[in-house]
Design a protein around this nucleic acid. Structure first.
Length: 587
RNA sequence: GCGCCAAUAGCUCAGUUGGAUAGAGCAACUGCCUUCUAAGCAGUAGGUCGUAGGUUCGAUUCCUACUUGGCGUACCA
């Protein structure tokens, strides 16, 4: 909405600039592109056009040019409402906020939860892969960043008009899976998640840890695991039975975690179901000559011509690798649901893997290989460094959610708001999720981030609960307005009453929202929405702290401020949905 | 060694795609709860934007080199 206002002013300035330059120079010249900016202070206006480059070209002082342009534009009666200002070398515009507020109010009333969405992806089919846990241990903090980004990007793509299919690839085969199985066989003594009362994924994880301890003392452990893998690939009934049993335990546990964290998928793939298909595809490539076989029987691809080295695709014993099954999975996915784009949400340490994967698929002749994208995100570290499972510093996802929920519950009780919030349990868990998702999405995905446990459990300052609190305050205010007999139908919205500086800023910020949705989509970056949300909330918080809404004086002013608050609330709601923050009507 | 990425306040992060006096939160200090929820608001203090060059009217932003850190370069995933 702000962009159309910006664009109309830009066109106007460009036209005048061009005709003035032609007049001064006596001929038509190609001018450098005009940039539009936001002035650093509200007093300077809402839009800024820096004129340095043009002033140089026309050999005049920038402020002179600014004045000249201002005069010329003011003569035009087709210009939009608003005011022109000369601010040194800048030509600034103070836009007509009342008109903007009126059209925003119409748009938000009409679109509701769809306000801010666009159709730039026009029904494009996008598959998004994320999470992808191993079935030998529970989820940890690393998965949580992955899940937050995956869910958020999925929602953002939808908001940009795409049809999204969320998929999860379960890593349920391989030597690491056999390790936990072997340890269970050796030390399990028949105990089960049920008999111990443990969550299935934690139960299996316990045996994965036990394997590591055992392997330290017994060098044969590793070879035993390899042997078990071979028996697994040969469908040995004993191994298969154990595998089915333990996989189910883990997957039941993971399903519970996903449910608690609000994560869902449209489809699950399992490595155990794709690796054989991957093998056959690699062999096809061998036949067609794009791959080659070494003397020892292993199959390779040579990517040295594009500086990617040689890469093995099948082991000498014919068993498959990570790459093998990923080739199979990609092809299977395209068959299942032909996509226009496939986004892999996977940690940055696997960049090389995906470069190779995309080239291999392209060598196999799949044209859609160019539509594959690796959304690479950075590591999550602790203040004291990397998380290490050996040192027990890995942050467990279930535990963290539990801790945060308990903290939120404590806050509600301490503030004696049980009655106000109603469902205390549900509210606590919503606060925990909001805090977590916002904490993890605040940072640009590309960058490594530091997870500070002490900071993450704080609900003050720039946090998810702060944002939720603003939403709850507005919601509560609107309820009070209605319960006190306020009627939004009866008293019309007069936008010209919103004249305060903070009110102008709020209107602008609301109008900016659709652009943030578009940009976070184009850049695959949820952190833009987080920054936006915080700016909006802070603005609102300051404004409503200083200016009464329900006791604003006249009925009309109350009505106008209620409208502004309601618009902020709708935008908060809409943006929350894109970054995994539950909206709360009270907290 | 080679490749990719990062470096902004004590800490964690923004920074409108090259423009005006580089911004937040946390931590520290100071005010504000008979007034729409204090999970809040306002204020003080805190900066050689890793270093050195270059391009430009203008560089935290682009280029080059260097320094530091991370990741990768497995018949692991």
């Amino acid at each position: 909405m702000l962009d159309t206002v910006r664009q109309s002013w830009k066109t106007l300035v460009e036209e005048e600039l061009s005709s003035y330059a032609t007049m001064v120079l006596g001929q038509e010249v190609a001018l450098p592109p005009l940039t539009v900016q936001t002035p650093p202070k509200p007093e300077l206006g809402d839009l800024a056009f820096p004129l340095f480059a043009y002033a140089k070209l026309l050999r005049m002082a920038p402020p002179m040019l600014a004045s000249e342009l201002k005069a010329r534009i003011e003569k035009r009666d087709d210009r939009p409402l608003g005011e022109l200002l000369v601010a040194g070398p800048y030509l600034n515009i103070r836009i007509d906020m009342s008109a903007l507020a009126t059209s925003l109010s119409f748009a938000i009333a009409k679109d509701g939860s769809a306000y801010g969405t666009n159709n730039t992806l026009g029904g494009k089919r996008i598959t998004i892969e994320f999470s992808c846990p191993n079935t030998n241990k529970p989820l940890h903090l690393g998965h949580m960043r992955n899940d937050s980004i995956g869910e958020s990007i999925s929602a953002i793509m939808k908001a940009n008009g795409a049809l999204v299919r969320k998929v999860n690839l379960i890593n349920n085969r391989g030597v690491h899976i056999c390790k936990s199985m072997l340890a269970y066989q050796k030390f399990g003594e028949g105990e089960t998640p049920q008999s111990t009362g443990m969550k299935g994924d934690h139960f299996v994880g316990k045996y994965y840890v036990k394997f590591a301890a055992w392997a330290k003392e017994d060098p044969s452990a590793e070879t035993q695991a390899q042997e078990m893998l071979q028996r697994w690939e040969e469908d040995d009934p004993v191994v298969m039975e154990l595998w089915h049993l333990m996989n189910k335990w883990t997957l039941d546990g993971l399903a519970e975690s996903y449910k608690n964290m609000g994560i869902s998928f449209d489809h699950f793939y399992y490595e155990s179901e794709t690796y054989k298909f991957g093998k056959s595809e690699i062999l096809k490539g061998l036949d067609s000559g794009v791959f080659y076989r070494e003397e020892d029987g292993s199959v390779w691809v040579d990517l040295e011509s594009i500086k990617l080295d040689k890469k093995v695709l099948l082991r000498k014993d014919g068993t498959s690798l990570y790459m093998t099954q990923d080739v199979g999975t990609a092809i299977m996915r395209h068959k299942d649901w032909p996509f226009d784009s496939l986004i892999y949400v996977v940690a940055s340490e696997q960049q090389y893997h995906f470069k190779v994967l995309f080239h291999v698929l392209s060598l196999l002749g799949y044209e859609w290989a160019q539509d594959l994208h690796h959304l690479s995100y950075g590591m999550v570290n602790l203040p004291e460094g990397k998380m290490k499972s050996r040192e027990g510093t890995v942050v467990d996802a279930d535990e963290l959610v539990e801790q945060l929920t308990a903290l939120a519950l404590g806050e509600i009780r301490a503030k004696q708001r049980e009655e106000l919030v109603g469902d205390v349990e549900k509210t606590s868990s919503s606060i925990a999720l909001g805090a977590l998702n916002y904490y993890l999405l605040q940072v640009n995905p590309l960058k490594d981030m530091i997870f500070n446990p002490a900071e993450s459990i704080s609900f003050n300052g720039n946090t998810g609960p702060y944002l939720q609190y603003m939403g709850a305050r507005i919601s509560s205010m609107l309820r009070k307005y209605e319960s006190e007999g306020g009627d939004r139908e009866e008293t019309g919205f007069d936008s010209s009453l919103l004249t305060l500086g903070d009110e102008r800023e709020l209107i602008k910020q609301i109008a900016l929202y659709p652009e943030v949705v578009a940009r976070s989509g184009a850049e695959l970056d949820p952190s833009l929405l987080c920054t936006y949300l915080y700016d909006l909330s802070r603005l609102f918080s300051r404004w409503y702290h200083d200016n009464p809404v329900l006791k604003a004086g006249s009925k009309e002013l109350v009505r106008a401020r209620i409208e502004l608050s309601a618009m902020v609330m709708q935008v908060l709601k809409n943006a929350f949905a894109l970054v995994g923050i539950p909206f709360l009507h009270s907290m």
